[in-house]
Design a protein around this nucleic acid. Structure first.
Length: 434
RNA sequence: GGAGGGAUGGCAGAGCGGACGAAUGCGCGGCUCUUGAAAAGCCGUGGGGCUCCGGUCCCCGUGGGUUCGAAUCCCACUCCCUCCGCCA
């Protein structure tokens, strides 16, 4: 959530910031009004409550002094004030709930540096990279044999079986086989080995409580996008960001321990309700996939550096895998609700002939930390301060898998995989039909 | 799934209807003593809302209830521990 005090003290700034995301200033006015009414109701309620406490104490005193009449009179009065307090409390609670509901669906303020724009078409391309670029090589032009989409070569090589996946779980649930399955496992091992120097490896639960989904901003607004297990009221996580953000929920961290850097590989589940019918072929968009995530809790001062560290680690992996990619600076209109600033990594896949998003690296400011109530105690003393949260995929495998299989395709139909995967796939790894 | 026990401040742990936001110990910070350190002694040490900055209210797992008054009594739920059953 955003800080309600900001709405109180500087509504114009909040309006201007949300305007950049296409949010009407009327919503900010509503927030301000609810906040004012709630505080007034709270003050009324507390004054009555204070009166009850004083009276109750006097009842005790009177009784101790054996003045039963006085005690009874005071108890009567206290009961009467208590009734009033109950009504005032109801009003105050009602306003608090209304305010909270609106606050939970209000998106984060975009960072000053985030480019303005209405949608994906306004994202800013920061840079492009391709193998050999630094040595002066031109941007690669795919050969004819690389123009085969991965769902075709994957099927004929016997490494990707979307039809049988659909038999088990419906469309868009991939089933990998043989070399295809091994490739996913190798990619995960490869990525985790690269992050082991600074990021603690976590294996979190992948079914979580409603509170856990709410902390990151995935609920209540995007309930339609998540799988929900009703009987036990648990949610299948759409990303490891969800359990990692809540891992320290409600805690006060020591500044000396920050930044806390975590990495996790998990299955990720997405209903993709809003994108029904789009990118349905092969691995372009799937309901279940494996992803290695980088995550950090940081002080506000550390956040920019950590953001860049996560981005450069994600880029580093794509480079090591030898895939051409570009980095986009997401415009205010395309930013996720909780994010203040996001960089997307897109890999070019020659068979599918498209740029595929394989990582999204975001800085959330204190928006998620406020929801999750994660703070740190400043080293120089003073009250606890909300941490900043950051995360990024490094990386999500289906689209990387697709790009590797398409770029790696050789004239004979086999797929040559990058040598960096040799420790897990054997020297000079190649996938052949079997 | 069944039976029993428990959840209190950074930690341990008392309190079981009236000045309890909470004893005590440990830890942590400051000071005294000391050439310095240790020891000893003294003082301090949770989070949050609102505020006319005087205060005031909330928080003893969570949510309800009883009462003039609840950390303390009642109900429900969650989690932890012990035992039994089941199980990868």
């Amino acid at each position: 959530m955003i800080d309600i005090r900001l709405v109180r003290d500087d509504p114009e700034r909040v309006k201007a910031a949300l305007w950049r995301r296409g949010i009407s200033s009327r919503d900010v006015d509503t927030l301000a009004i609810l906040d004012r009414e709630h505080r007034a109701a709270l003050a009324r309620r507390e004054a009555l409550r204070a009166r009850v406490k004083v009276l109750s104490r006097e009842v005790g005193q009177a009784r101790k002094h054996g003045d039963a009449d006085r005690a009874a009179r005071l108890a009567d009065e206290s009961r009467r004030v208590g009734e009033e307090e109950k009504a005032a409390a109801q009003e105050s609670d009602r306003l608090a709930a209304e305010l909270q509901t609106l606050l939970l669906t209000t998106p984060n303020l975009p960072a000053r540096e985030a480019p303005d724009g209405d949608g994906p078409e306004d994202n800013v391309e920061l840079r492009r990279w391709w193998p050999g670029k630094d040595g002066g090589a031109p941007e690669p032009v795919p050969a004819e044999h690389q123009r085969v989409p991965h769902w075709e070569s994957g099927l004929s090589l016997g490494i990707l079986d979307m039809a049988r996946g659909a038999r088990l779980a419906g469309s868009m649930f991939p089933l990998y086989r043989a070399g295809g399955a091994q490739l996913v496992r190798a990619l995960t091992s490869f990525a985790l080995s690269r992050h082991a120097d600074a990021y603690e490896e976590i294996r979190p639960p992948t079914l979580v409580l409603t509170d856990t989904m709410t902390s990151t901003g995935h609920l209540p607004k995007f309930a339609d996008e998540a799988y929900h297990i009703e009987r036990d009221d648990l949610w299948a996580i759409p990303t490891a960001e969800v359990p990692l953000t809540s891992m320290r929920r409600g805690e006060i961290l020591d500044e000396a321990d920050l930044p806390v850097r975590l990495t996790a590989v998990t299955q990720c589940f997405r209903r993709e309700a809003g994108a029904a019918g789009r990118d349905t072929r092969g691995l372009l968009r799937v309901h279940e996939f494996e992803k290695v995530e980088l995550f950090a809790y940081a002080t506000p001062a550390q956040a920019p550096d950590v953001h860049m560290d996560i981005l450069s680690r994600a880029e580093g992996l794509v480079r090591e895998l030898g895939l051409p990619y570009r980095v986009l600076d997401l415009c205010t209109g395309d930013l996720g609700t909780s994010a203040a600033r996001t960089f997307d990594l897109e890999v070019y896949a020659p068979g599918s002939d498209r740029w595929l998003e394989v990582s999204s690296v975001s800085w959330f400011g204190d928006y998620q930390a406020r929801r999750a109530n994660v703070r740190f105690r400043p080293a120089e003393g003073g009250p606890p301060v909300l941490v900043h949260t950051l995360n990024g995929s490094a990386l999500a495998w289906p689209r990387i898998w697709a790009a590797l299989v398409e770029w790696g395709r050789q004239p004979d139909g086999s797929v040559r995989l990058p040598d960096v995967l040799a420790p897990w796939l054997g020297p000079a790894p190649v996938i052949r039909s079997h």
